[in-house]
Amino acid sequence: MRIIVCAKQVPDTSEVRIDPVKKTIIRDGVPSILNPDDANALEEALKIKDNNPDVTVSVVTMGPPQAKDMLIECLAMGADEGVLISDRAVGGSDTWATSNVLSATIAKMGPFDMIFAGRQAIDGDTAQVGPQIAEKLDLPQVTYVTEFEIAKNLKDIKVKRQLEDGYEEIEIQTPCMLTAIKELNSPRYMSIGGIVDACGADADIKVWNAKDIEVDLTTVGLEASPTNVYRSFTPAPKGKGMMIEADGEKEQAKVLLTNLKAKHVI
């Protein structure tokens, strides 16, 4: 059985701050990380591999050359193979174009049984690429997976899918696409041996360009993307608020409530 995991290297958006004067993003020192939901996707694939030695796990990603570091991390966690698509021709792709690139890559990688992806990446938060890859590859999908169980035949799968007010239990067969959320599991750490192997000369990490994956170049990149950025801006801060300075907590509470009442909000 071969499992493909879709992953993305993302800036750790929780470390990002806005420069209060220039209103621009301060990105100095913001680390690049394996997208959190994707780590859950990889962990679930590795758990299947733990129980079934014949299973192989391949990680695929699209990004700049340095996304290779993230693939090394995935291999150090236990993945067997990593594939990076890096090409200026695919830069600026929206989700539709990105799914064209990744589905072409997966098709090029050869037969597989299952694709695991994170629900969404923390830099874009769209949750669109997983379902759109599934559509291009004509696979059934379940998103927001919180529990996963696979039968001994490695074909019949039972999952729980999170809803806002509960969950669904769903049966699905391979081949299929599942997208993981953090409730699914706790991703393992890299192992020392894994790190050594992943950094070694025998580590199976491939870097491909658009030509390698034989993708139709009119369906990828900025030009081909159906959506474009019209304008972008930083959100305007609100007017300055009022700091309540009063003698003691009781007085503070009183001043606050007086003000809230004056504003007709309570």
Partner: peptide
């Protein structure tokens, strides 16, 4: 920076006071 009203203090001391005074808001105003 986004707050309309800010209180610098220990929430364990401030919140109980807000709870206690909540019903008096009208009279305070």
């Amino acid at each position: 920076s986004v707050a309309d009203y800010g209180i610098v203090g220990d929430l364990y001391k401030v919140i109980p006071q807000i709870i206690e005074e909540w019903d008096n808001a009208e009279a305070l105003f």
